[in-house]
Amino acid sequence: MLKKLILLFVIFLSFSLNAQIKVIYPKVQERATDDYGYRILYLALTKSGVPFEISISKEIVNFDRARTQIKSGEVSVVDFGTSAEFESDFDAVYFPIDMGISGYRLFIINKTKADVFSKVKNIEDLKKLKAGQGQGWSDVKIIENAGVEVVTTPLFESLFKMVNGMRFDFFPLGMEEVYGFLEKYKDIAPNCIVEEKIIFQYPFARLFFVKKGNIELRDAIMKGLETAYADGSFQDLVNKNFKSSIEKAKLKNRIIIKVSNPNLTERFKKIPEKYFYKM
């Protein structure tokens, strides 16, 4: 009898372990392993009520490579700034994990250009200057659609070297990340500052994406995010990570240059407004 009970327990334990969702998150060069996206993912899975096991891939990759890894199944989920292309290639979790804050862009510039940017008042002025962005970023098409020339590179840290060397005029980054990244790369961009007069804004957000057909993981993440929002733990994590940067940005003192986002899908537009940040 005891042997039968032990056998049943082993079978049950094996079934329980196999029932776990196994999640592999990519190690993207633009982000640390303790990145906000990873923490939001962990929160969502915890709140989903679904057993899970999460790990981080060993290979450091850029966003283009992360997209390939999702398609091949090497990783399970990644968060991107959304685009129609991404939403077509993958199954999106339609919840803005950054509340759309990444659509509020500040500029890293060489400090010798500060006077030039002090004279920028609108998009027509900005069109006279050149932006830098990462290869494969969805922002590239948005900025180009606004009439601004964009220089791209596959290596994230190269963007700091290039703006420091004035290979282009400004490097737009989300206001939630710009100060942290400039501090991180200050040794290779010693002449750079965060421009103080402009905020470049467009409808945008970071979403989680999973491989096409991975409905179980997609739905678990969505359920967890909705639950975390309802109980306030999502907002707590947003504030913990972004509040100081938003305050430092001094938005009320800035000129807002708004442009459209031609990459927005009809499905994205249906995301409830309550999930988005408002100035």
Rank of each mutant, 00 (worst) to 15 (best):
I6H: 11
L8H: 06
L8G: 08
F9R: 08
I11W: 07
F12P: 04
F15T: 12
F15V: 14
F15S: 10
N18H: 12
I21L: 15
K22Q: 13
E30T: 15
D34Q: 09
Y36M: 00
I40N: 01
L45C: 05
G49W: 02
V61H: 01
N62E: 02
R67F: 00
G73K: 13
V75E: 10
S76R: 10
D89W: 03
F90Q: 10
A92Y: 01
M99F: 09
G100M: 01
L106R: 02
T112E: 14
V120F: 04
N122P: 06
D125I: 00
L126V: 00
K128A: 03
A131E: 02
Q135V: 07
G136S: 13
V140G: 01
I142W: 09
N145Q: 04
V151G: 04
T152A: 03
T153L: 05
L155Q: 10
F156L: 13
S158A: 14
L159K: 06
G165C: 04
F168M: 14
P172Q: 04
L173F: 11
G174L: 03
G174P: 10
E177I: 06
V178D: 06
F181H: 13
E183D: 13
D187M: 03
N191C: 08
N191T: 03
I193K: 10
K197H: 09
I198Q: 01
Y202S: 09
F208K: 02
K211E: 11
K212H: 08
N214R: 13
N214P: 09
A220Q: 05
M222T: 07
L225H: 08
Y229W: 15
D231V: 09
D236R: 15
V238Y: 15
N239F: 11
K240R: 14
N241F: 11
K250Q: 09
L251G: 00
N253F: 01
I255H: 11
I256K: 15
I257D: 03
V259H: 07
N261E: 05
N261Y: 06
T265E: 02
E266N: 15
R267P: 01
E273T: 12
K274C: 08
Y275F: 12
Y277A: 10
